[in-house]
Design a protein around this nucleic acid. Structure first.
Lengths: 238, 238
DNA sequence: TCAAAAGTGTTATGATTACACCCATGA
DNA sequence: TCATGGGTGTAATCATAACACTTTTGA
């Protein structure tokens, strides 16, 4: 079971893992027009009941990236999650018991894929909307704030936003995602023109189901053009 | 005296500092139209004679940012250097003796300010042009490559490039800096229009001295607009 | 007087913005 | 039939790219 770096695991895990460095992970999801993050609750110790970012220790034989992937998998059961390192957070007083530096990561998951792993209950892990985040343990509010800025930057430079959407999506869903992440309003018509002009999307022969208005065309993204744009970046200046 | 993380200091410094984490720093300079980095030479141990990035240990009571500033100051004598963290490099085999994770930083210095510190000789530290970097110790070539990419990104989003130039500079010097960092050619006329249009620069009542052609007007940047643009970013899409 | 760099001006093209408008569909 | 979102069209404005041109100055 994944733990957030807590007072107990500090004492228990020293022998089997790197003992001055942890991983903390901001997991983003997008649901009903809202950007959310997955937080976990401390079970024991002095921070009992408080929420924080999921995290844990780095094993002696694994890279930090591997450690982050492993922790994510233990929590969500998902492989192949989009994951990027943020940076290291190294304030000497960030962790109360002793000096621990943490490496921040952020992940983008499709909410349709997400299922809480056995070992976790609804009271252990919960999605929080980005604008109603509680007071978190240690420096986790700072890490979260940094991750949001980073997401806003990255989303305008590479087509990573798709990792938050279902395989098939409508143009307006995509636009709402950008509006929510960037905190701005966009023009429907101009957005359509711009995004279609990039040739990144493939129109499907399918329409939305079960909506109480005109059904919109569904799109997916072209994986070939996606990798091309991810490598050389793109300019999404809204 | 600054050390790059070497086999000796691993053994000597364990008691006084964080022993599984180091700092490595890419120091960029701009001289005669070329982008350069400052490398230091290993004095002892199995990597004797090889070049690497300057780096060192993090003291128990200092933040990672403070550690990077301290190491830079010990090496160059400079305070107030422009410094940004890159990310943590955490491959389990990156350091040969045992598991050490390093936090990469990059710094931008004005070559006019730079003076090698007492304790260093010319054979200890040397500027290398970006396109003739030797084979470096550990994963330092990887860290350097990453820092160049990061510099290219940042330079197009915030006016940080000025940290590499003297206080007073001509528009063409600035343009050549961008050309060198981004590895592209630019149009003089279009560059002038674009950069002046941003209102970031202040024209001085001074001209270049001692040039064998028409002397160019000197500029400095407006610190107020500079901070504004640094906060909200700018778009330098060349 | 010539080379070298400083500095200005012009035009075509394309992207961006701010709209207004029509369409399809379930309640 | 009306509310809701889906989808199209257009004109004004602005940024960019490519280019030719003039000016200044030391050697």
């Amino acid at each position: 079971m994944v733990k957030i770096e807590d007072e107990d695991s500090v004492l228990k895990n020293e022998h089997s893992a790197m003992n001055a460095i942890t991983i903390d992970c901001v997991i983003f999801g997008f649901d009903k027009g809202s950007l959310e993050v997955l937080l976990v609750q401390h079970g024991e110790g002095i921070s009992k009941g408080k929420w924080g970012l999921p995290g844990g220790w780095i094993l002696k034989k694994e890279s930090t990236d591997d450690a982050a992937h492993r922790l994510l998998n233990e929590l969500t059961g998902l492989d192949n999650i989009y994951l990027e390192q943020l940076k290291a957070f190294g304030d000497p007083d960030r962790f109360p018991l002793r000096r621990v530096i943490t490496i921040g990561y952020y992940a983008l998951v499709k909410r349709e894929d997400y299922n809480i792993k056995a070992g976790f209950t609804a009271s252990d892990a919960k999605w929080y909307k980005i604008n109603s985040i509680p007071d978190l343990i240690y420096d986790h509010n700072e890490i979260l704030a940094y991750s949001i800025k980073q997401l806003q930057n990255r989303v305008r430079q590479a087509p990573i936003g798709f990792n938050l959407l279902p395989e098939k999506f409508t143009l307006l869903q995509l636009m709402h995602l950008y509006e929510e992440v960037l905190g701005i309003e966009m023009d429907k018509s101009n957005f359509r023109r711009k995004i279609l002009h990039m040739k990144l999307l493939v129109a499907l022969d399918e329409k939305q189901q079960d909506v109480s208005h005109r059904a919109a065309k569904l799109f997916k993204f072209d994986p070939e053009i996606y990798t091309k744009l991810t490598e050389k970046g793109f300019n999404f200046e809204f």
